[in-house]
């Protein structure tokens, strides 16, 4: 229990450091949100007006005061309001987070559906033609940067073939069919690289498990091959797959910038990029707080699970 509490405290401390770092660094980045707000499409704002807006937005307060206020707000669960449009950041994050999670989730499921069966089959016959082709494809899939793949997908499926829309987003509640159509390409783009990773780990981990004694025992006992593979081998081989997969998904939470850009998907990354571009400090800190909290939480979860299963970790 003490170990668990210490680990949680450590996570919270880390979150605080991350937030402080982001707050500091974003304030040192050149660029003035007040000026940018008034300078849309080459507008030329009067310096006096910029100054007045800065005053109004509280950007002229001493840094320490801004920092303590921010921290106070965060402790109360308030992510602040956007400089650009004055809307609550928390609300916007909560609107966009599900979209990003949906995108990652769809990509994740797709990659598991491709990666695990391919990995298992390939581990069962490591020297077969299928295995070689699969390895080659996985290597290629992993080597195509997402923005290249996304671009090619748009050209092929939207422009040339016209099967799918080129990008955008429709809320599920408004038009479920279109919503799903719009989800396919970005999800597939992320899924391809991810499935290659899943494939490789599944394969490697199956290769590790298959020669083990209990599999041989099960086989010797006359358990059908299918059952051996799925119930015994795969179940044991899945742990590393899940671990790596979970961490990959965590990394994707704000790592879908390029896919969201190419496909015009209004997720969390887009919000972050827009925030950075407009120097909308509350938006940037808000998104990063949520993303890193997610990430730190995920790490904590993995640690706790390991801790529960392996007492040695708990020292």
């Amino acid at each position: 229990m003490g170990w668990f509490l210490r680990r949680v405290a450590q996570s919270l401390l880390m979150l605080w450091v991350v937030i402080s770092l982001v707050f500091l660094s974003i304030n040192f980045v050149p660029g003035d949100p007040a000026e940018l707000l008034l300078a849309q499409d080459g507008g030329s704002p009067d310096p006096i007006m910029v100054e007045m807006l800065r005053e109004e937005l509280g950007l002229n307060r001493p840094m320490l005061e801004q920092y303590t206020r921010k921290m106070g707000d965060l402790l109360q669960g308030d992510l602040g309001t956007s400089i650009v449009d004055g809307s609550p950041v928390g609300q916007e994050v909560m609107r966009r987070l599900p979209r990003t999670l949906e995108l990652i989730g769809a990509a994740g499921i797709l990659s598991l559906l491709i990666g695990i069966p391919a990995g298992v089959l390939s581990a069962l016959r490591p020297r077969s033609l299928f295995s070689r082709i699969a390895a080659l494809l996985a290597g290629t899939a992993q080597s195509i940067p997402v923005f290249v793949l996304g671009t090619l997908f748009v050209i092929l499926f939207a422009t040339v073939l016209g099967w799918l829309p080129a990008g955008g987003f429709t809320p599920f509640g408004r038009d479920p069919g279109r919503h799903m159509m719009l989800l396919i390409l970005p999800a597939a783009t992320i899924a391809l690289g991810l499935s290659a990773i899943v494939f490789r780990i599944t394969r490697a981990s199956m290769l590790d498990v298959l020669p083990l004694d209990f599999i041989r025992t099960a086989r010797a006992k006359g358990v059908p091959a299918r059952r051996v593979i799925i119930r015994h081998a795969l179940r044991n081989a899945l742990m590393p797959v899940i671990t790596v997969f979970a961490l990959q998904l965590g990394g994707l939470l704000a790592g879908t910038v390029l896919v969201e850009t190419v496909f015009n998907w209004p997720g969390l990354s887009g919000m972050l990029v827009a925030g950075v571009n407009a120097r909308d400090y509350p938006v940037v800190t808000g998104v990063i707080v949520v993303v890193s909290a997610f990430y730190i939480g995920l790490n904590l979860l993995v640690d706790v699970i390991y801790g529960l299963t392996d007492p040695r970790v708990r020292k």
């Binding site: 880390m14 450091v17 991350v18 770092l21 982001v22 660094s25 974003i26 980045v29 660029g31 990394g251 994707l252 939470l253 704000a254 790592g255 910038v257 390029l258 990354s269 972050l272 990029v273 950075v276 990063i288 993303v291 890193s292 990430y295 730190i296």
Partner: peptide, 16 residues
């Protein structure tokens, strides 16, 4: 702490 930032995000922040 560094690992808490997704790589592309960290690079973007630093590049700006």
């Amino acid at each position: 702490v560094i690992l808490c930032f997704p790589p592309l995000l960290l690079a973007m922040l630093a590049a700006t």
